[in-house]
Each structure stands twice: as C-alpha cells, then as structure tokens.
Design a protein around this nucleic acid. Structure first.
Lengths: 235, 235
DNA sequence: AATATAGTGTGTAAAAATTACACTATATAA
DNA sequence: TTATATAGTGTAATTTTTACACACTATATT
C-alpha cells in the first residue's frame, strides 16, 4: 500500500463500507463495472464502486444507494459475498468493507452517469485483462468472481445477465465466459432443455447474416417449482 | 427487540463485532457452542459467543481471540460466512457483526472455561431444540447451519468433527445429523471409499459390546491431490 | 456352553446421467 | 449461385446413482 496516500487525510477509527462487484455480459464478453475515483485516497485510480455506509441504513440499503450514487444504476438484486477486514486495507484507518455482487444485462447500454462527485466516471471493463485497482479491490474482485463461478452451478444467475429473450448459443457462451472453458454444444443444449425451465418462443433472432436461432426465455415460475422440489422432496 | 434493554447503556455509533457458530459432534448428536451472558445487553441470556473487534486486529484474529476469551477454546479453523448489518440488530446502536463458523471434534470434552467475565459459562447444546438466543443470534445460527449443510457436499468438513480415527458408521451418522436425513449404508460406504481419501487402519473399535468396526482416517494429502485435479484438469 | 443382542460388512442389477462425437439445415452476403 | 457463418440434431458407450437383504462377529446374558 502506498504510504504517501495517508498524508493530510482524516483518520477513521471504525467505519464500514460497501464495495460492489457488478458483472455484465455483452458481445460474448464478461465485463465488470469500474469507476474512476475523484476523491482521496486513490484519487484518479480505477476502483470498484464503493463507499461508506450511513448510520441509519442497513447494509443492503447502503449497497443499493452507493451503487446508484456512483454509477447511476439501481434496482439490481445484489447479494453480499464476503467481508474484508484487514487492519491496513484502508490508508485512512480502520475500514471494513462488505462486498456485494450483482449481475446485469447490458443490452444496448445507456451511458453510465455518476450522480455525485465521488466518481469521475463509471464504465464497463472486460474481466480478462483487468487494470490495477485501488485499495484491495483486485482481491475483492477475484473473490467475487470465484463466488459467481461456483454459484452458476446451483443457482439460475446466468439469466440475469442475458436479455429477456436469448438464444441457446448466447446462454452457452455466457457459461463459457464465466467458467472459462469450452462446452459441448449438443450436451449443453440437451441438459439445459432437460431442466424444463426454458420456454421456447415463437420467435427468432433478427438482423443476423446467417440462419437465425430460436429465442428462449427463462421461466422463473417453473424454475421455482423444480428447485423447491429439490429442497423438499429429499429422499 | 426488547426496548427496555436500551435503558442506561452507552450508545454505539459504529462498531463491528464477531459472532461464532461452532459445531461439535458427540454421541451421534450435532451440537452448538453457546454462552450464558454476564453483561448487558441480554445479561443472563443465552447467546452465541461474540464480542467487539479491536481497532488493531483483523477480523480473523478477532474471531480467534473472542472465541478464546469467551469459551477457552482456541486454535480452531474458523471461516466467516455472513455479515449481519440491520440497523437495529443491537440495542445500543449501530453494530454490524461478521459471523464465523468452525467445526470441532468433541472427544472426551475438557470443561469449557470462559477466560474473561463477559460469559458466565460456555456449554454445548444440541442443534435441535435450540433455546431462545439474545440479539439476532437465532438467525445467525440458522444461516450458519445452512452454510455448512451446503458445504458438506463439496468440502471435507465432516472430518473436522470426528476423532482422528473413526468408523464409517460414525461418519455416516454425522452426515445424517447435518443433512437431517437417513442415508443408505451400502451406498454411503461405496461412495466414500471410492473417493480414495479414506485410509483404512489396522485397528478396530474398542470397548463396544458388539462386533468392532474397522477404523479409518482422513488422508488430507490424498484429498488435496484429488481436489486440485478437480479444479485444474477441467475438460 | 448356548443363545440373545447389536451393529458390521458386503454385491448386484436396473436406471439415470454424462460423455464423446459430425453432419445437415438455413439465413444472408457476395 | 455460391460462399459463409451459425443453428440444430441423435446415439452409443461409459459412469454414476439407486434400491435392496442377509450373513458375520464380538460381547453379554443365561
């Protein structure tokens, strides 16, 4: 940690903050939401969107507010995944941070506009080839990425990253991006369809210069029914 | 939350604490470590072992210290599993708590002796039929129990609860206790042995009034090798 | 010494899930 | 019309999971 970052800044005794690891998927590529900081410490550095929790708000509420203020995004379903509490992780003193993640569909992205002045700008960056980040945010990102990779196996998180209507190839390439490996097309389709929670639509892809693929959507009702059975009808 | 608990106590603005959900297994029964509090708020109530983190210690260090001071236990491998941060979860003000879990073998338990005066006593209590706990500790316990239930499927946590040498029946009844369902004996053994990380010893159970079972131990080296392969040699 | 008791230890066949693998179909662009 | 780029499809072999019942053995009891 750069020691000169500490100069002339107030000291914290006991503060909690939130940091957000927000994934997006676009053009077959998995991305993460970063800000350029406009405030010390780490002014002008790239970092995860994150800030201090207020006295009278829950962690979940703080996460939603902070993400909104720094990036203009709101209404995401975020979940905490780890709390980082090393003594010297923040140059101004003792700050522990609760890290949240969310997944977001990036179809035809509106510009990201920070609401307050803490962030100079907010933007999407591919998860591969991530730049150096302020604080311990590189660690936080890595921990979060491992978490969603795990979660992909037993929770329907992929659909949060796709447009409402998607092709099976899009779904597969998302899985491949998160798991970082190639999957077999026929086996992937067989398996996904066998779950029974994908609804085939009477519609096809448009605007492509090759055979258009069928569109599907995720049927959350059916998913819940199946998932509940898994939990309750245990033998 | 009982409002009169707030009377005459100092107010906290911003404090972090640790709470510990420690599981033990004894006589076929899964237990959890509780204390009887000797300090307001919730004086004389039962609660999870937990207390406030100091300025100059990491969360992991705090967890170890606090568990030791309240119960006399130390050297456990603890891991955080969730952070609880509702605004009013603590009657004295804003306290967020990072919850940790650990698993412990209870073979021929030495008495539990709190080191400082925060806890009147510490004791093991069966996880079924849990009494009412102070703060939001019942929620914390439930969240922790669900976590280890999940983790049982992909991490070798069961062995932390058993003595070094154990029988397959003991292992099975531990799985049954955590998962809260009966398993098939032959299938369970076949599967466990097929992993190849259980080492059969040249030794048998002693002091039982029936055919003595073979003893096994968990071979962590072999486990690591297998587990690493799972992670790296992905197709 | 015989017997009761209580838990140990073992095998197989059927069903289900997973894997590996390659070609035809179709939409658009040139 | 032809080139190109992706969509869409089936099967056999292998592996994993499931369901299921009885003989064995050490001790305790009579």
């Amino acid at each position: 940690m750069e020691k000169d970052l500490e100069l002339n800044l107030p000291k914290f005794e006991s503060v909690f903050s939130i940091d957000c690891v927000i994934f997006g998927f676009e053009a077959g590529e998995l991305k993460i939401l970063l800000i350029e900081r406009n405030e010390d410490p780490y002014k002008d550095w790239l970092a995860l969107p994150g800030y201090i929790v207020k006295q009278d708000e829950s962690l979940d509420d703080a996460a939603e507010r902070i993400l909104y203020e720094l990036t203009g995004l709101r209404g995401l379903h975020m979940e905490q995944f780890h709390t980082f509490g090393e003594v010297n992780r923040h140059p101004q003193g003792r700050v522990i941070t609760v890290a949240y993640y969310a997944l977001l569909r990036l179809n035809g992205q509106k510009e990201l506009k920070p609401i307050n002045q803490i962030a100079k700008k907010a933007f999407w960056h591919p998860v591969n080839d991530l730049p150096k980040l302020g604080f311990d945010h590189t660690d936080i990102f890595k921990t979060g990425f491992n978490k969603i990779r795990r979660r992909l196996g037993y929770q329907p998180i992929a659909f949060e990253l796709l447009p409402e209507k998607f092709t099976l190839t899009q779904l597969q390439s998302l899985y491949e991006a998160i798991l970082n490996k190639k999957l077999d097309k026929r086996n992937f389709r067989k398996k996904m369809l066998s779950y029974g929670f994908l609804k085939e639509l009477d519609e096809k892809q448009k605007g492509v210069s090759y055979r258009a693929a069928k569109l599907y959507k995720f049927d959350r009702r059916k998913y819940s029914k199946i998932f509940q059975n898994d939990l309750n009808l245990d033998k």
